[in-house]
Design a protein around this nucleic acid. Structure first.
Lengths: 231, 231
DNA sequence: CGTGCCATTGAGTCAATTCAACTTAAGTGG
DNA sequence: CCACTTAAGTTGAATTGACTCAATGGCACG
């Protein structure tokens, strides 16, 4: 009965590897239609009838919730390869907006449900995606509920580094604005900014441009994201 | 392209009603074995091999994550009727502990997967549960990321009120400790306590005992949980 | 070469935390 | 049944990390 302790953002989702293997030959790749959205356009809004689900081909998408008074919480950033809009109920629980120009593959809900019933592979992929999203959300809860501003920003960078598909994982592409990062991490834009500056001054990262961050000391960044037990 | 605005904890999960209908005749009710755990015992730990999933019959369960330095985030409280431990990957992503003495129904993972493949009803129930959990986690993100202490506590009470199965929904049973509430809401125990006292002094609630809260003014409590746009 | 958006930095404030004392309730064993 | 022990909850005072407000800097785009 050991006390289990997780390595939040350090670890990748266990199914991620296998998921990536099936990327090229996803059972779904035969279906769906390509569509494009340009930067800052809404793909669907919270409360909209959930007719379609999507998969990102290129670009990035922001999935968020808005409170009546304008406060925003971003639940997830969808990057190339990611599915979103799958957790239909009656309607979408989140708003999806294009962070950059995006190319999406678009799946009709009815068709997806039918495919899921007929095809075991498709079904497994749907389950896997839902589980992955739940897993990610649960890690996100720890960040928002229990981490300091420093830890949050460091966690975010580690996470992006892990998800990046670039050859050089040290150089991270940042498709979202500082405000988006703030709304993802439950901070203000000023705090995100100051924290990034601090990380830069400590030599952990470089910020060559607004949309690019270079990790100079990944180990230290990981430590900043999740301090070890101090015994 | 209207700006969709959600009613977080006010609304119940759209599938909740239909789910409850199938409660008595859940396609899974024929399978599974009954088991008991007493207060404060661990059902499974984060990182444990995910052999079983569970459904709460009586009592309450706490699902949490622990950071290496002891900080804790509770992701969910499972109440009678709720499934948990379904988001297996290789192992469990959360730790499950009995808040009170609990009676659980216990489903072997392999068997559940087979049943899901064979039986359309079972599959639908698994999907529905995963979607519900994801939906709940996304609402939880808003609470942790963007709400004040007052709003968090009010949201929590509204949520419990909605999930309660008691005849008198005004009187809420609180099976968890103040520390549990704090770890669910991303606050300290002191802040939870002070906030409850404030709500009591404002006449919104009564606290007849530590494990019982009476809602005197549900409308005002809802308003406290989610302020309207101030135009 | 403005115009406007986004990002950065600084100064002061405040909500929630930390630290500490005390109260109440819940066992436990004589 | 009561004295004793321990856990859980409450309240107060002081501290602080993140926020608000405000001003400035920098880049992209027409």
């Amino acid at each position: 009965m050991s006390v289990a302790v997780h390595e939040i953002r350090t670890a990748q989702h266990p199914a991620a590897a296998s998921l990536r293997v099936t990327d090229a030959k996803s059972p779904l790749s035969a279906f769906g239609t390509v569509s494009h959205y340009s930067r800052n356009n809404t793909i669907f809004s919270e409360g909209d009838d959930a007719e379609y689900s999507y998969r990102v081909m290129t670009g990035a998408v922001r999935l968020s919730k808005m409170m009546p008074d304008g406060r925003r919480q971003i639940a997830e950033f969808a990057l190339p390869g990611d599915f979103f809009g799958l957790n239909w109920l009656e309607d979408h629980a989140l708003t999806a907006e294009a962070l950059t120009d995006v190319t999406l593959i678009c799946y009709g809900r009815g068709r997806l449900e039918r495919l899921g019933d007929e095809n075991r592979e498709v079904r497994a992929e749907l389950f896997s995606t839902l589980r992955h999203d739940l897993w990610a959300a649960q890690n996100h809860l720890v960040i928002l509920g229990r981490q300091s501003a420093n830890e949050r920003v460091a966690s975010f960078l580690i996470q992006l580094m892990g998800r990046s598909k670039q050859a050089d994982k040290r150089s991270i592409d940042i498709p979202m604005t500082r405000q988006d990062i703030a709304d993802y991490l439950g901070l203000t834009i000023e705090t995100v900014c100051r924290t990034l500056t601090k990380l830069k001054q400590s030599g952990l990262i470089d910020i060559p441009s607004r949309h690019e961050i270079v990790v100079r000391n990944a180990a230290a960044l990981r430590r900043a994201a999740q301090p070890e037990e101090q015994n």
